[in-house]
């Protein structure tokens, strides 16, 4: 029997659509990281000062830290259900390049958690005194940063999928790796605010994103195979 293999792109699209449908049916879980994001940024004025001009100094950094933490929240369960019910095993056996399927899953995760954070960031930023002139840079930096973070987090989630209490461990693994994103991202925002061109840090963020995009799937599929094979 000669099996006709589904084209890889079509298979990846199916994975993406399946995750979107699942998320649509449990939208409250999707909303949680976003709520977390808003709550965390609310804590900073309360903990430091309500003075907007003082908050403006740290605003970009606060938005970035909160976005990093919020997008880590939902990552822990990214592959768990699929590994437990055997879906991932079928992917490994399907003959499709595993990295692409996992990347499709990460892309769905990013659309559901990363993108809402990016869209929400001007509102949150305004609350921290960021002027409208930095909205574009803030969103662009978060767009690239959350994309990279989803891939890095995907690697972390794939590694910790079989581990008890994996969520703390996942943060410990991923956050140190995400420090460059934090540095470049918040730096781009403050450079724009000071009237400098933020092109440098944004380009570095883009470079890191493309590196993660090209190397990340390899690491993710290696990690998933380790979790599935035993």
């Amino acid at each position: 029997m000669t099996a006709v293999r589904t084209p890889t792109l079509a298979a990846a699209k199916l994975v993406f659509q399946r995750d979107m449908t699942l998320a649509w049916r449990r939208w409250d879980e999707v909303a949680q990281p976003l709520m977390f994001y808003v709550v965390v940024t609310t804590m900073f004025p309360l903990a430091t000062t309500p003075d907007l001009s003082a908050l403006r100094e740290i605003g970009g950094g606060v938005v970035w830290v909160a976005a990093l933490l919020a997008s880590l929240l939902a990552l822990e369960a990214l592959f768990r259900a699929d590994v437990e019910d055997g879906t991932t095993e079928q992917w490994v056996l399907s003959g499709q390049p595993l990295g692409y399927l996992l990347l499709a899953k990460v892309a769905a995760h990013w659309v559901l958690t990363g993108l809402p954070l990016v869209i929400m960031s001007p509102i949150v930023g305004t609350g921290l005194g960021l002027p409208t002139s930095v909205w574009g840079v803030l969103m662009a930096s978060l767009l690239l940063g959350t994309g990279t973070l989803s891939i890095l987090g995907g690697i972390g989630a794939a590694l910790t999928v079989g581990v008890r209490r994996g969520s703390v461990l996942l943060s410990l693994l991923v956050l140190p790796l995400a420090m460059p994103l934090l540095i470049f991202g918040s730096r781009a925002v403050s450079m724009q605010m000071d009237g400098d061109s933020p092109a440098g840090p944004l380009q570095l963020l883009a470079a890191i994103f493309f590196m993660a995009l090209s190397l990340g799937p390899i690491a993710m599929s290696a990690a998933i195979r380790i979790s599935v094979e035993n």
Binding site: L159, T160, V163, R164, R165, G166, L169, L172, L173, P176
Partner: peptide, 8 residues
């Protein structure tokens, strides 16, 4: 992180 992952 490496040691924590290994230990878990």
């Amino acid at each position: 992180g490496y040691m924590a992952l290994r230990a878990s």
